[in-house]
Simulated assay, not measured.
Amino acid sequence: MPDATDRRILRQLLADPAIANADLAERAGVTSASLWRRLERLRETGVIRAIESRIDWRALGYEVQVSLRFTLDKTEPRAFDDFMAAARKVPEVTEIQTFLGTVDLRLSVIARDMAHWQQVYRDSILTLPHVSDSDALMLVSTIKDVQELPL
């Protein structure tokens, strides 16, 4: 389990993933050597899996984001595998999640504008296999989007 120093390091990494190790060590109150050992241990134990960049799709011209929920035909033994394999091939699909309950899967899909969304929907989404029901939610605004943990 991470101790108080590890949690300080993690808080600083969450606030600024691109922080230089020297600055991170200073902010966490440890030496550079101690920071390196702690980061290695946090990676080895799986606490830190990766340092990632978060891309703002809107800044790249993708103005439409849709969350699609699917219920699959579960009488087909390969429904999940076939659906996920096909969904992975759609470049505009940014996230695939599976669920227990009435919804089996959720896709996050981005598009440049409504015309592009219609093209993606017609050419790629409607052709996904084994769908028995679907529902679409178009993102209007994001009120809260944090990746931070209460460390």
Results as ranks from 00 to 15, higher is better:
D113Q: 04
Q119N: 09
W36V: 08
I125E: 00
Y121V: 00
E52S: 12
A136Y: 08
D73I: 01
G46D: 05
V30Y: 08
Q119I: 01
K89N: 08
E95L: 14
R106W: 07
D6M: 04
G46L: 06
L13S: 05
Y62T: 02
W117K: 00
Y62K: 00
S124N: 13
F83W: 06
D123C: 02
D135A: 15
L39N: 00
T75Q: 12
P129T: 06
L126I: 06
R11I: 04
Q118K: 13
D16R: 12
D104N: 06
D3Y: 00
L149W: 07
I19Q: 08
A20M: 14
A79T: 07
V66Y: 04
D104I: 06
V66W: 02
P77F: 02
L137K: 13
P2E: 11
T31D: 12
K89M: 09
M84W: 12
T45F: 07
I19S: 03
R37P: 01
A86S: 07
L137C: 09
L139N: 10
L35I: 05
V131I: 13
V90M: 03
D3Q: 02
L68W: 01
A50K: 08
A111F: 00
F70R: 02
P2H: 01
T75V: 12
P77E: 02
Q12E: 15
T45K: 10
R106G: 10
F70H: 01
S108T: 13
V93T: 05
T94P: 05
P91G: 05
M114Y: 06
A86F: 04
N21R: 14
L13I: 10
T75W: 09
R58P: 03
R88T: 03
Y121P: 00
A28R: 00
Q118P: 02
S134H: 10
L126Y: 04
K74R: 15
G29E: 05
M84Q: 15
I55F: 13
L10W: 04
A20C: 11
I110Y: 04
D6I: 05
F99H: 14
A136V: 05
D16P: 03
G46V: 04
D23E: 14
A22N: 15
